[in-house]
Amino acid sequence: MSFAIRRTRALTGRTPAVAADPAIIEAAATGAWFAFSLSGGKDSSMTAWAAMEWLDDLGHPRERRIAVHADLGRAEWRSTPAMVEVIARRLEIPLLVVRRSAGDMVARWEQRFASGKARYEALETYNLIGPWSSSSLRFCTSELKAQVIGPALARRFAGETIVSVIGLRREESPARRFTPVVREDHRFAKPGNRANTRMMVWHPLVDWRTVDVLAGHDACGLPLHEAYGCYGSSRLSCAFCVLASAADLGAATRAQDNHNLYRHLVGIEAESTFSFQPGRWLADVAPHLLSNALARQIADAKHAASERRALEAGMPSGLRFVKGWPPRVPTRDEGSRIAAARSVILRRHGLEDRYPTGAAVRARFDALLTARNARDRQTGGKEAGLGRA
């Protein structure tokens, strides 16, 4: 065990150890590639440091290790890229920075709302879909991180065993309580693939507590991101994260470098009429940073949001989105109610009202059902149908 890890144990009064299993030990012994995912946050940095020393003890060659960072663009703290570079240099391994070719996190939110409006106009969705990711739809981590890092590693190290080292801890949330130490990752290297590439995910510090992680930073002399020490954030992700607490959102607004991003995201709230988080408007976190014009736009958006929710709540519940939507053609009365509710929402967003009457709505539902049934016949009923976010 390394000196740094021994000191961490002494400081915390506990004995946190690097979690591993026979599959990881074998991968290390056979010279697998280890890719350390760095976000700039405390968990990824400490995970990489502790795992590096654990691998050193096993004699794993350092030249078969790499750090990787998925750059989320404007959504990041401005200091994050530099922090990631600092940690990679301290680890003494090369850094691979990857980016989503279709645009950054902010562009993804904007694209989602634009797509949602187009589909709502075409009556391909029952309710208007907002721009933001959420706890149940975390495309921020899937599309802009995993779906970018995974293929990049699979291409770079084709034919190898690749271990992605990620700093998830069970203490972080109830959803992570059952995080495994190791799992096979078939998303980007399916079993029996032509290149014979194997991918695994390893969570070395899965049983560590926050106090262990912070003590480890102190013991190893690892720097902490400014979000923690300068601004009091409890975690690091995007500067403004859809999963952040009110306190962490407030912490982000105290950094002047985040002010333009803050106003831009509030502008998306104003345009879309969807709050950044369910029940919490980002605009309310630091209203003193908003211009008078933007504050007025937010007030109007909040009113429009209440109106939209009331209108959608009054639409027939039996026709709400389910897998394979739509379930049936509305009745005449239902069609009229849907058309009336949609007209207000469409007008608010400057969209064309292509189905302004109950009869037009019913005809559109009938066309959607016909198209779905035709697809089902071709695919054996395996398609999920329309209405997916």
Rank of each mutant, 00 (worst) to 15 (best):
P356L: 01
F321V: 05
H264G: 01
F188C: 02
T141Y: 03
F3C: 03
G350Y: 05
A359D: 14
E110Y: 00
A19R: 15
L38F: 08
V285N: 09
E26N: 07
N258G: 06
L311F: 10
K382Y: 00
A244E: 07
G103F: 12
R100A: 12
A75Q: 13
A246L: 13
N373M: 06
S291F: 02
R377M: 10
R309M: 05
L214A: 10
R7Q: 15
P330N: 07
L137W: 14
A367H: 15
A239D: 12
A215I: 03
G167Y: 04
A244D: 12
C230D: 13
T210E: 10
G103E: 13
I338T: 07
I129H: 15
L72P: 08
R65Q: 09
A295K: 14
G31A: 10
F34T: 00
L243N: 11
Q256K: 15
A301M: 12
A305Y: 10
C230T: 10
T161A: 07
L168F: 13
R364N: 12
S336M: 06
P131M: 01
Y231T: 02
V148K: 01
E383Q: 12
N292Q: 12
G116C: 09
S237K: 11
L168P: 07
L72T: 12
I162Q: 02
P151C: 07
E110I: 03
H203C: 04
F3S: 08
E143W: 09
L123K: 09
A82I: 01
A251Q: 15
A195F: 04
F188R: 04
S275W: 04
R177F: 03
R119P: 10
G387P: 15
D248L: 06
R280G: 09
V213N: 01
I166P: 00
G40I: 05
S133W: 13
R342P: 15
R78C: 03
G130N: 11
R254C: 05
I268N: 04
R263Q: 10
I162Y: 07
T210F: 05
R138L: 03
G216C: 11
A283P: 15
D71L: 01
A313R: 15
A158M: 10
H69S: 06
T253W: 08
S133Q: 11
V211D: 12
W132E: 09
L243H: 05
A28F: 06
L55K: 02
G221T: 03
N373Q: 14
A389G: 07
V242N: 06
F34S: 00
V163C: 04
P131A: 01
P174M: 05
L289N: 13
E334A: 08
